[in-house]
């Protein structure tokens, strides 16, 4: 099986679904690139990091739609098209730009089905780049999955690699509800084995990447990679951890998390986002509420600090959670011994 980057896997997912279903359209800022330019090149970029390259050439301007930089209109157009027969994939170039267009997502698209008494379907996907690591500073680097996860009516997908990205995106496109699909921009070049064929990964089904008896680590997106790195290092110290990637924060596979904590008795949640009212606190609350009896030690959260993402590389590196921080968190609760030992 061929190794493909996450960029290629996402491109392939969109391409396969556009071939399969003529109602699937793609729209966003420079998703093709170059419209109106003097070179008469109409597929110049394929998105700012080249993820949708070539789709315009295959599907043409009626299905791969370059828009002005008008995010509210992009998301609102997608929502309106979705309730009326199309299946749009709307790209928000950077998830930070949600500030410009959040209304169309959380007051409009997310509410239709419920607010209209179950009579509306809104099969739209908002794809967006997320995450820190590219020195892109405070307005192009945030991890905002919690902002979407908290909204009833949205499904939220946070893939941690190429294989998952393709299967989850196809699932998202076929889903009849609005799905927020967040792509970590520092992971586009990471390669994994990805089938050429279409496949779907169901939402709400966590991936257990590694199983160990001592500690459960729950992590998302790029943090899954760092957690696996930490797990390998901890294994050398004789500490075996389970690493769970929920894949989707809504729906959340609470069973897999609780079952694992029941076995390990210890939980570390790793989240690139800020620490308050976050995915990390959400998982911690879940386990405190429903798995308290299993816990042998305090729940530990490894997150970014309560600060915007800084620009300077040394500051950004200090900001993003890494394997060393995860290992330290694990060690702090393994070394602490039993629940009453602290």
């Amino acid at each position: 099986m061929a190794k493909k980057s996450m960029r290629t896997a996402i491109n392939e997912a969109i391409r396969l679904e556009m071939r399969r279903d003529p109602t699937v359209i793609l729209m966003g800022e420079d998703v093709a690139g170059g419209q109106g330019g003097s070179a008469d090149v109409t597929d110049a970029f394929g998105g700012v990091l080249g993820v949708t390259k070539g789709l315009y050439t295959e599907f043409g301007p009626s299905r791969v739609i370059d828009t002005p930089i008008i995010e509210s209109a992009i998301m609102g157009t997608a929502a309106g098209a979705a309730v009326s027969g199309l299946r749009p994939i709307a790209e928000l170039m950077f998830s930070d730009f949600i500030g410009v267009c959040y209304d169309q997502i959380f007051n409009q698209a997310a509410k239709f089905r419920y607010m209209f008494g179950g009579k509306a379907q809104t099969p739209m996907v908002m794809r967006s780049m997320t995450g820190a690591g590219l020195r892109a500073a405070a307005q192009h680097s945030q991890s905002l999955h919690a902002l979407f996860t908290m909204v009833p009516g949205l499904k939220v997908v946070v893939p941690s690699g190429a294989y998952d990205a393709k299967g989850l995106l196809i699932e998202a496109i076929r889903d009849n509800d609005p799905v927020i699909f967040l792509e970590h921009k520092a992971m586009y070049d990471l390669e994994e084995e990805v089938p050429d064929e279409a496949y779907t990964i169901p939402f709400g089904e966590a991936n257990v990447l590694r199983e160990g008896k001592d500690v459960t680590i729950v992590a998302l997106a790029r943090m899954v990679r760092f957690s696996m790195e930490a797990a390998a290092n901890l294994s050398k110290l004789g500490i075996e951890v389970t690493v769970i990637d929920p894949r989707t924060t809504s729906p959340l596979d609470t069973d897999t998390i609780l079952e694992s904590v029941a076995e390990t008795g210890r939980l570390v949640v790793v989240d690139e986002a800020n620490p308050r009212c976050s995915f990390a606190t959400d998982v911690a609350a879940l386990v405190a509420d429903q798995g308290f009896k299993y816990l042998k030690a305090p729940i530990k959260l490894v997150t970014a600090p309560h600060a915007p993402v800084p620009f300077a590389p040394n500051l950004e590196d200090a900001y993003i959670p890494n394997a060393a921080k995860i290992e330290a968190a694990v060690l702090s609760i393994v070394a602490a011994g039993g629940r009453n030992a602290a």
Binding site: I69, A138, Q139, H140
Partner: peptide, 30 residues
């Protein structure tokens, strides 16, 4: 991205600002 930068190295090119001269800041959001 150095110490002593107009924004302490926390803003960078896209967020450069200098309120002391009445410059409200570059902006990353179109």
């Amino acid at each position: 991205a150095r110490e002593g930068g107009l924004c302490g190295g926390k803003g960078g090119s896209m967020h450069i600002a200098d309120l002391s001269v009445g410059m409200l800041g570059a902006n990353g959001i179109v």
